[in-house]
């Protein structure tokens, strides 16, 4: 495993917005090993999503280099690119927006299987059921439309769609920030299990440091289009070397547990110290 799975080298991207030039990426470099999770954090407008979109070939950079499995990823085009896309998948922040509102869950999951001829079984319906089971969903959801699912179920389907491609890397752009607090942990657990089972690598984009702390041993801090700091998550969180990282850490809400006032009624959980 000497060769990194993904090598991003000096990416630049400037958008033209109403005559004003916005530098979204100003020389971003990073690399990611097979099976690893790297988090990219940063304040809004820092360029996180643009970085993801460039890596996914949804946006073309102005200059820079991306190597995927050692091959020039930006040089691919047409059918060759479409074939190789299988190995690099994405889970979007808003799971409702990420599905064609008119397609059933079954169709949504059949598409990647059909495009890449991946169905292990002869019957695509069986493969769909298998995919749903892998993300903890029951088979009868296949007939539903995306808006008929809960937020957590939708994000599971999004993960299943990525898994259908048997990718080497999944880019997760804020995968839980649109979800209810009580289902976030379920999705993070699922992502963790999937990684253990398949050895897929994650590029996790988030501004929630707590999620990053849980998921990613390595962290890169992006600010105004450049990586200002990168390294082990634990190290950066305890002794940040950049103002951007410091600001994010300071801004993360902490649960304030002052010793509870003596309760009027005896609390059975008094001893449960958080």
């Amino acid at each position: 495993m000497s060769e990194p799975l993904l090598q991003v080298d000096d990416l630049h991207k400037t958008f033209d917005r109403g005559g004003r030039r916005v530098r979204a990426l100003a020389g971003v470099s990073l690399d990611l090993a097979r099976g690893e999770t790297l988090a990219v954090v940063g304040a809004s407008g820092g360029g996180k999503s643009t970085l993801a979109r460039v890596i996914l070939r949804l946006v073309e950079p102005d200059r820079g280099r991306v190597l995927f499995s050692g091959r020039d990823w930006l040089g691919l085009g047409g059918a060759a690119l479409r074939r190789e896309r299988r190995r690099l998948q994405m889970v979007f922040q808003d799971p409702l927006a990420a599905f064609n509102p008119r397609a059933t869950i079954g169709q949504i999951l059949t598409d990647p299987l059909a495009i890449h001829r991946l169905a292990a079984t002869a019957d695509p319906a069986d493969a769909v059921v298998g995919l749903l089971a892998r993300v903890g969903l029951s088979a009868d959801l296949a007939a539903r439309l995306p808006h008929e699912l809960s937020g957590g179920q939708r994000q599971r389907v999004a993960i299943a769609r990525a898994l259908a491609c048997e990718p080497d890397l999944i880019v997760l752009d804020e995968p839980v920030s649109a979800l209810d607090v009580s289902v976030r942990a379920q999705i993070l657990n699922l992502l963790h299990r999937v990684q253990v089972e398949t050895g897929v690598a994650y590029l996790l984009i988030s501004h929630d440091l707590a999620v990053v702390r849980a998921m990613a041993p390595r962290l890169a801090v992006i600010d105004q289009g450049t990586i200002v700091e990168a390294g082990a998550t634990a190290t950066i969180l305890t002794s940040p070397g950049s103002l951007a990282a410091q600001a994010l850490i300071d801004a993360t809400p902490r649960l304030i547990v002052s010793p509870p006032a003596p309760p009027a009624t005896p609390t059975p959980d008094g001893e449960r110290k958080p």
Binding site: S182, V183, A185, L188, R193, L237
Partner: peptide, 23 residues
């Protein structure tokens, strides 16, 4: 909710404490 709150000070063990099901 409180048991599931993720804290910056330590990397939690998986599986994270989660509430089953959906609202």
């Amino acid at each position: 909710l409180i048991a599931g709150h993720l804290d910056l000070s330590r990397a939690p063990a998986f599986p994270l404490p989660a509430i089953a099901g959906a609202p």
